[in-house]
Nucleic acid binder design. Structure first.
Lengths: 279, 279
DNA sequence: TCGCCGCTTTCGTCCCGCGGAAGACAAGTT
DNA sequence: AACTTGTCTTCCGCGGGACGAAAGCGGCGA
């Protein structure tokens, strides 16, 4: 803990000069670098922008983008900008823990959305992040936070705290030892506090996060675990409401009921009614 | 063919995939071939299966899969099988005509689903196919046809017929001249009949498809266009019900109302109320 | 008109990705 | 236990694809 902390190279990508011999990027990594250039804040890019963001020469970028385009990974709009193609959406939908899970859970999540009229998300863990596989917005609220495919650090969201609380120790250590990004003054950034929060989540089976992610609109997020065939936590179901409108204690029961429904559909032993035969 | 043929280079690396077009495989194409190995019927694969389906040597597959895995494009489950990773879901969600569109349309589609209690899909055109960007299932019906990321030929679905009817002539010619895959005895496979159907769709603004896709469960699909900023058709909204339960004429009004709502949200001039100023 | 910027194409060199081969490992069969 | 079959992993030499420089193209604003 008290070890000397090396200077963090701020924003500096490992600038590779040809001839320095160090780097040797692989061809596959270049393809992925092109895809990596796209992001929520950069959904469409020009060729030059891709080139710069991927750190590739314009020639290489041009060729790779051309190949990706004919395959359908990228598409070009009339104004010449490039964007992600539908082929990648099609592929991404095949993710076992992604839209496959959504497919099964969507009726339950839909009911929850209808019942609570709140923002509802279903998230799974990917590394040290939570990725939303389903997100339904409340009618009025325009929250850009929760989108399908949205990715946030585990410690800063209700669903993430659930997933982290029930994740393996090595995952928890990795998150707790790493920097805890702060999004608002209320975001938990102290490892000890986070550790206590996680213990509380494990004890109660519910995570309650207030104002962790957004500063402008005070929000209350409540989340519970969803379990799979081996009773392991495979996802987290969460709702977000404007702070003050609803108590967390009022949301927990309906959340738990919905989560249990999904868990049962997934084949979780603990969620099966005693009478029902195991398939 | 009577030209002097040099001795066949035994160790030639230009080993082509049999039947998979003409070769000169590029490195990028190999990466894409690995991704291409996955599909709805093959959501998870072993390394050898990927190797075979991609037409790559096991060595190459092993290396590429390794790179794709550390990047997050693929993930490996406990049983050793590979599947699509959440990173690709995240990327696919950035598709301008994909989940971006879904994000905007989902409240309307949701209402339609609640009102009709039917299967509802929102599809966009990608080449000669329709790709669903949103799909909501009716409570009882388990229809594997409509999933987010699902892809079907334009001529065989209600939404596809709408998209084809309003697509450019070159797209129509390509589909009409190509083979029209038959899924059921009712699937339109005659180009002339399809041409008449498309004209009817253009005239009425509604596509009605009966038993085009599924043979076992008689189904009625109704679809209408969704328009964008330039009044061009950017998507199609469709519902599917069991044949006999509802008349197409009863579904069309609510479908049109919903589609108009989405079109308005997209900024379509024809869907704007007269008072509103054009942006 | 010029210059600027982004995109496209060509081309020769070099290096990295390729497949063969062999080893490690697991599971089913005789 | 020995054999078989299938999988996954590692190592290595060679050759051809991928790379970047540079030149050509085209639109836009000064």
């Amino acid at each position: 803990m008290s070890t000397t902390r090396p200077l963090r190279p701020v924003g500096g990508r490992s600038r590779e000069v040809p001839g320095s011999g160090q780097g040797s990027a692989t061809a596959a990594s270049r393809v992925l670098a092109v895809l990596d250039a796209f992001g929520p804040a950069h959904a469409t890019l020009t060729l030059s922008e891709i080139s710069r963001r991927a750190g590739l020469s314009l020639t290489t970028t041009h060729r790779l983008v051309g190949e990706l385009r004919v395959w359908g990974a990228l598409e070009r709009s009339e104004d010449g900008r490039y964007g992600i193609g539908l082929r990648l959406l099609e592929l991404g939908a095949l993710a076992p823990h992604g839209l496959q899970l959504r497919e099964l859970a969507v009726p339950y999540v839909d009911d929850l959305h209808q019942a609570t009229r709140a923002n509802v998300v279903l998230g799974v863990r990917d590394g040290a992040d939570v990725v939303y596989v389903e997100a339904l917005r409340a009618r009025g609220a325009v929250r850009l936070m929760s989108r399908i495919g949205g990715r946030w650090p585990l410690h800063a969201t209700g669903t993430g705290q659930v997933l982290l609380a029930f994740a393996g120790p090595e995952v928890q250590e990795e998150v707790l030892s790493g920097p805890l990004t702060s999004f608002t003054p209320h975001t938990i950034t102290d490892p000890a506090a986070l550790r206590r929060t996680l213990a509380e989540v494990r004890r109660t089976g519910v995570a309650v996060a207030e104002n962790q992610l957004t500063a402008d609109a005070p929000a209350l997020a409540v989340a519970v675990p969803v379990r799979g065939r081996g009773d392991e936590v495979v996802a987290a179901l969460g709702v977000t409401v404007a702070a003050g409108t609803t108590q967390a204690s009022a949301l927990a029961p309906v959340l738990n009921a919905t989560a249990r429904g999904i868990s049962r559909a997934l084949g979780a032993p603990s969620a099966q009614p005693p009478s029902r035969r195991c398939t």
